[in-house]
Every structure is written in C-alpha cells, then in structure tokens.
Design a binder for these strands. Structure first.
Lengths: 345, 345
DNA sequence: GTTAGCACTCGAGTTCAAGGAGTGCTAACA
DNA sequence: TGTTAGCACTCCTTGAACTCGAGTGCTAAC
C-alpha cells in the first residue's frame, strides 16, 4: 500500500489533533477538521489503511486512533511545517551576565522548562579535552598549598593540599615554573606517567612534594570526568496525564534526580552526528534511557567555542509540540553562540 | 479531662500502629495490640475521650482514628522510646574522602535518603561570616586576571576578570599586597565602601583598575549569598500514598526543585536554638514551608568547625518513623564532626 | 468501672444499565 | 470505481443501586 497525499493529510490531521488534546481522535473529527471535504466513512476507510500500515493504532476497538511511534517518526521527519512562532526571547533572560558557567546552565534549563512546559536537562561542556592554560601554587598557610588550574574556556579548578614540610617562597616559585613549562598547552589526557616521572626527577630533593602536588593537580583535573548535568521542570510531567501516574512519574523523577542516568542521553546526542543541526529526536523506545520509553526526547548539542560541547535535552510526552521544541532549541543554540561571542569581547 | 496513664498507653498504641500501617486504626486492633487486656468497647470509650481532647481524629464516622498534629507532637515530645536501633554505618559510605564540599554534601543527602526512605535536603554551610584568609590575583592572559579568594574553612572562590589595559608584573604584585593588607582577616560583611575608597586612593594611577578588581572580588565573595541546597530521595514521597497524589506530589517536587523555597527551613532551623541538640521537629502546619503542610519535617544543624553551620532536613509523611529519623540525624551529626576533625589532621 | 451486644454510619467495591463515541461493513449512489 | 449513508456492533464511561465490612456510639447488664 502506498502513502498517497490524502493519507498523508489525514495522518497529519490525526497527529495534530492528538498533540493538542491527548485524546484518541475519531473519524468524524477529522472529517470536519480538514479541508478535504470527505465524510467520516471515507476517513474511516483511510484510517483502517493507515492502521494496517502501522502509522496509527487503536487503544481498543470503538476508540479513536492515536499515532504510533512510527507515525510520530514520520511526522517529525517529513510532515512538520516550519511555521514561524513567537519564541519568547530567552536571550533577554539569559544575558543577566552570569559569569559562572554553573549558574548560566541552571538558568538555561530553567528558562527552557518554563518556555516549553516540558522537563529539561543540560550537560556542562566537557572540558577534559581542553588544554591547560595556567597553573599556580600559592601558600595559604604554613602547610597548606592552594593549587589553581585554569584550562581553555576559562574553566577554573582548584584544590587545597596539605604538605608535611613547609615550602620556601623560592621552592614554590621553582615548582610553579616547573609545572607551567611542562604542562601548559597539554590537554588532560596528554599528561602521562612518564612526564610526571621526569618532573619529579627535575624537582630534585623536593621530588616527594612534587609527587603530592602533581597528584593533586591530576585529581583536580580529573575531578569532573563524570559530567555535570542540570535539570529543571521535572514536575511539568504532571501536566500530561499519560505520564502522571504514580509508577511512571516516580521512575521519571528518579531518573532526573540520579542524573548519571541521563549521561546515556548526552553520549548519544554527542555521538550521533547525522543531523547537521545537532538536533535529534527520540520517540518512545528510541530513547537510550529506559525510564523514558513513554516519552519523547529532543536533544541539541551546543558549543561554546574552543571545542566545549554540551547537550541540551527536552523530555516530554510523545505528543510533544515538536515544532515548537525544535524551533526553540535552534534559537537557543544561536543565542548561546552569540552570548559566548559577546562574552569574548 | 486528664491524660492518665491508660489514655497515654492507648494513644501511644494508636500512633505506633498508624506509623506502621498508614491506615486509620480501630478499637479492636488496639484491644488486641496492647497488653492492657481491655475490650474494644472500653478502648472506644477512651478513644472518644482522646478525640475530645484533640489528640486523635476520625477521617469520617465509622473509620478508625488517626493521630492529629497535636497527637504527633505529644508523641515526639514525650512518648518516644529511645530504643536502640541498628543505624547503618553511614560513616563508611561517607569517608571515601570527598575533598570537595559539594560532593560530600550531595553524598550525605543521598545516603540519608537511602537510609531513611524519606526525602532529604542539606544546606551548604554559610560562609559569609567567615574571614578572608588569602587573596591572589594572577595574570592568565594579556588582559585576563584570575582572582582567587580563600576564606576560613578553606572555601575557595574565584573569578576571571578582563582588564582593558595590560598590567605589569610589578603592578600585579603591588595590587596583591594592597588587597591582602587591607582585606585579610576581615569577614565579608566588614568590607565596606570607605575601605574600598581608601584602597583606590592608595592604588594611585591604577585606581580604576583597582575598582574593577575590587568589584570582582566583592562579587566573588557575595556570590553565594543565596545558599546552596542539595536534595535527594525526592521520589521517596511516592512510597506514602497520603503524599503521592498528583496535586501534592507535584507541589512537593516543585519545592525540591526550586530549592530556594527550602531556605525558610534552613533559616528556621538555624535560628531556633531551643533544643540543645540542634534537632527540630515540625509537624504538619508547623513547618515554615507551605507545600509541606501535609508532611513532617525534621531538621538538624551541623557544624564543621570554624563556625561553618549548615542544616540537614528530612521530609516525610506525618507518620514518619520519628525515632529512627532523630537517631539517624544524631549519629550523622557526630560522624560529620569526626569526619571534619580527622580531616584536619 | 468494664464489657457484651446491637443498631447505625459510611466508605469501598461490585454490579448493572444507560449513554455515547467510534468502528466495520454493506449497499446504494455518482 | 471511489464515495457516502446507514446500521449493527463494540466497548468505555458514568452513575445509580447495592452489598459488605469495619468501626462506632450507646445502652444495659455484670
């Protein structure tokens, strides 16, 4: 069987209607809804075909039809209109110039959740590919040393370490020079054992302290291997009856709380380069996170220059407003881009 | 009417039973449950009295009784046995030596939630009363300066600031000395405008840059005025049917997400010094957070030396296991204390 | 003061019928 | 040959009536 133009129009109408109401839609509704001027009987025939083809399904006999995952998929891939919508100017809300990355990301997640009425997540840009820009040890106390490491993208990590024996100003200066000459310009992965050994040797009598220091530096650098994820709008799921029952709500909320469960989403989004826009749509079982099998997930990757890539995700019911979500994410991508660039100036 | 011994025993039995089951408890149950050897009829008479006195109430005629807020209050204040319980050794789980305060607190919240099966929150110790210990400016780039501020308790704040004109090494050194001499040993509140003006003057031709720098420092210091709160176990509320309906669940989850709504709890807990143990119990409407009017909240303050005080909260149904929760919190208090002290070594 | 007994209340759960939305099929129509 | 009207059928939803049982309050007897 072929999906001719009329079938397409009917399917589109079914999906649109279902997106709005969340109720199964019957033939009579469609017959009035569209400009096809067909009777409900004809629509019924077509609907039977569409069901056979797997685009829609009936929750039970004598109920209307709802889109299947396959139907949504078709809709997202080919049937969405690129209708212009007023997207609330998120930038305005964002540019209160949050210096801290963390606050910015939290803010983005929140604004996005308010905007879309879905649950949102955003992963902090991964930085362990970034190069070390600057290292400094300073003495805070007689036996406490503060290590500050700045990497590209102005991400700052720091660590306080206790040393058994007091270091002189001179030693500290030497160590600073040693660390900077060896490590500057290297990415975190490039720092290896051989290099550390070499540095220890050069440090001479202070080699044990260097060891301590380097360990601390390495630790500070590695600290955020497990990526930070911020979420917002979790309780928006209660807006959609199909997700709001105890079982599902509990699972979803758990997923949002145990954020590492969301890493799968981030990996997937970053890995899949198929779409040039960096926007992906996962419908139902397509999503890599088990607890979201009754949801749809839209992810977008963003980039804050210098290769700092992160992922934004919107999680809602299958009948989410794909047009709006995708459009919003696009806008957000460009706005984050602009924000980063004006930031540079 | 007087609350004699028998009435007390019966009330206690009602509460105990209700804590376990969550169901209204009837006279027959009590008559068998206790060692009083009274018939259900007698119990009924006593229950009528207890109801009149306001300790218990009936959801509807012909249902059993449930404790009122007043009943719970009496129970918590006077009737709890200090029965020894096995509290799972949280310390073991904590002492994986989390250097970062943040990770430690998140861990505490999580372990506590797993332990008690309630929702938990923990506020980061407030540091703006603490004294500045160390300030350092370093040049990262031609026109980027890194400001690092360490305050008592080894809390580190940092900020990258852009300067229009490049600063020489010498200027930087001067500025560092200037900042340290003026600000060291002061708490954040003690830094005022007059002092800043004086510093600007001393900086001479660099006064504008000093302004910038000090603004940045002030900003970095003030950054965490709004206190950090970490939560865990939100979805535990679904374990208790009386909290799990859509309306309440949604509100509660929202409160946990919009963490600033929890600040009320923290303020209250820190303010109220009535109990020497630092443990407070809020039942139903007693809680300062509106959305928790159907819950009970137990808070404990903890102290990590050097005046860094924070708050731990456990939020559950009114029929929470007060004994266990309070006991667990006590243990946690001492363990955090020990952890801090071994940390110092 | 305690208890047995009994009538009564009220919610939870079940059954049943009515109502309605929606379907599939058939036959007639253009 | 495609479209449509019509009709019987299915199945969910709603609400009323009913039963059941837990629990109560009250009274009278012990």
């Amino acid at each position: 069987m072929q999906l001719d133009e009329r079938k397409t129009k009917i399917l589109q109408a079914i999906i649109r209607n279902y997106l709005e109401t969340g109720e199964p839609v019957g033939s009579r509704t469609i017959s009035k809804y569209t400009d096809l001027n067909l009777s409900s009987a004809t629509i019924r025939n077509e609907m039977a075909d569409l069901e056979e083809m797997g685009y829609i399904l009936q929750p039970h006999t004598s109920a209307g039809r709802i889109p299947s995952d396959k139907g949504y998929r078709l809709y997202v891939d080919t049937m969405m209109e690129d209708r212009e919508r007023e997207v609330i100017e998120m930038k305005e809300m964002l540019v209160e110039r949050q210096d801290k990355m963390e606050t910015l990301l939290k803010q983005v997640a929140k604004v996005l959740a308010q905007n879309t009425q879905y649950a949102t997540m955003i992963s902090a840009p991964q930085t362990h590919h970034n190069k070390v820009k600057f290292i400094q040890l300073s003495r805070v106390d007689a036996n406490q040393i503060l290590a500050v490491i700045v990497v590209e993208g102005n991400v700052i990590k720091n660590n306080i370490l206790s040393v058994a024996q007091e270091l002189s100003d001179e030693t500290l200066l030497k160590l600073n020079i040693l660390l900077n000459t060896h490590l500057n310009g290297l990415s975190m992965e490039e720092i290896n054992l051989g290099m550390i050994a070499a540095m220890k040797q050069q440090a001479g009598i202070h080699s044990d302290i260097v060891g301590e220091v380097i360990d601390a530096v390495a630790e500070a650098i590695k600290a955020d291997e497990d990526l930070e994820i911020y979420t917002s709008g979790t309780n928006n799921i209660f807006r959609y009856p199909e997700l709001a029952d105890q079982q599902k709500a509990s699972e979803l909320i758990n997923t949002f709380e145990e954020k590492q469960q969301l890493t799968g989403l981030v990996q997937e989004a970053l890995a899949d380069e198929s779409s040039e826009t960096g926007i992906q749509v996962y419908i139902g079982n397509e999503t890599p996170v088990q607890s979201m099998k009754d949801c749809s997930v839209v992810t977008a990757t963003y980039e804050l220059g210098e290769g700092m890539k992160g992922t934004i995700g919107i999680i809602g019911p299958k009948r989410m407003d794909y047009d709006k979500v995708i459009h919003t994410l696009r806008t957000l991508q460009t706005q984050l881009d602009e924000l980063y660039n004006t930031d540079k100036k």
